[in-house]
Write a protein that binds this DNA or RNA. Structure first.
Lengths: 208, 208
DNA sequence: ATTTTTGAACTGACTGGTCAGTGCAAAAAC
DNA sequence: GTTTTTGCACTGACCAGTCAGTTCAAAAAT
């Protein structure tokens, strides 16, 4: 996730876990959880297989902790964007816009993580389902919060359905960003942001 | 995918394939491709394992044909919605709105397929990657077509980025619908449609 | 200052189990 | 009589998880 350097003051342990996260996230994003072997993860991390099990109870525990770690970064980034806009005296729509940008920047930086998140989110019957739901709710809640405040202060229509609209916005960003990465990587973040911003502000219909 | 009835005049063969599609789509959506065994698929379809291999060359071929089959249904449904609106003298925005509804209806009917599609779409390095890209382009192209026509006739802003906006719209529908299924299944299709419609028409900001 | 001990971190060969795919003779369906 | 399905035994590859043993830096003993 991070650059390879150790987390401040960190022990050897933490550095190894970090390497394992990095290795696992790419491989699982590319191949899926079941198709990725622990041997592959260990090899890519430059570590023996035993080390994986020294650091994590099992393959799925490694994966769960990876999820928590990644979504933590995302929510922090969204929250920060919203608060920064607040401080600068922006409107709620400005805040949503800033969050869209923050979301895009995150996906641009950690495409593998996003891919993996989307692929696993709606799967039922899996060990980490509950982890994932909790973690998803955390992220969506940030968007819902801003929407609700916007409705409260009259800036947004009081007829909008907050949870559904939040989900739709998140989906819009997620899918547009993944498509950008996969199918038009030459486009700039600004391009993508502009297109989504336009959609958010309803400047799609109306010929200007 | 379909109800169990055979395709017109169809042989026994086709009926068996159909049963295998249905069994595979649910299992793979729940567990992922690698975690789903051929034995499970056969059992759920009420068929011997040998029959799977009599009808499909391999597990991944079965999956690829399943993908093609499902996306075929979706594009047909989107195209139909757009054309119906056209005939009824609706605007392009109306057509987009009708397509959103058609998309939601599709996902509502075949949630497992959608789930599986989303989970596999952005994976790289897989045998069926190319199949998937072709098939995705077909679906997105329908939306792009309507957007382009809207820009051409002045109904939509000529500043919109057609491919990005199309991807964003598809994503919005996809993610909102999956969230609806997974987290608020009690909501009606109309509710969800209304929320997305509002977003499309820019009636989110502006307090009326 | 030098030697010894400790223990956390790591290693990699090994095990027990799983699963895709095969082969084929006999039955059923058409 | 031809096509399709069945049932089932079998193979070979692969893989999650284990465990006895190694490494080494820092602490303790001398």
């Amino acid at each position: 996730m991070e650059s390879s350097s150790t987390t401040a003051g960190g022990g050897r342990r933490e550095a190894t876990r970090q390497k394992l996260y990095e290795a696992a996230v790419t491989l699982i994003a590319e191949q899926g959880f079941s198709a990725t072997t622990v041997d592959e993860i260990a090899e890519r991390a430059g570590v023996a297989k035993g080390t994986v099990y020294y650091n994590f109870a099992s393959k799925s525990v490694l994966f769960e902790e990876l999820l928590r770690h990644g979504v933590g970064l995302l929510t922090a980034s969204l929250r920060e964007a919203a608060e920064r806009t607040e401080r600068d005296g922006g409107t709620k729509v400005d805040a949503l816009d800033a969050m869209i940008r923050a979301g895009l920047a995150f996906i641009n930086r950690y495409p593998a993580f996003t891919q993996l998140y989307v692929a696993e989110l709606w799967r039922t019957n899996r060990a980490w389902q509950s982890t994932l739901m909790v973690v998803r709710q955390e992220a969506v809640a940030v968007v819902e919060g801003v929407l609700r405040e916007g409705v409260a202060n009259g800036e947004l229509s009081d007829e909008i359905d907050v949870p559904l609209t939040a989900a739709a916005l998140v989906g819009m960003v997620l899918v547009a960003a993944l498509d950008w990465q996969a199918f038009q990587p030459e486009r700039s973040l600004d391009d993508v942001h502009a297109a989504l911003s336009r959609l958010l502000q309803g400047r799609v219909s109306g010929n200007r």
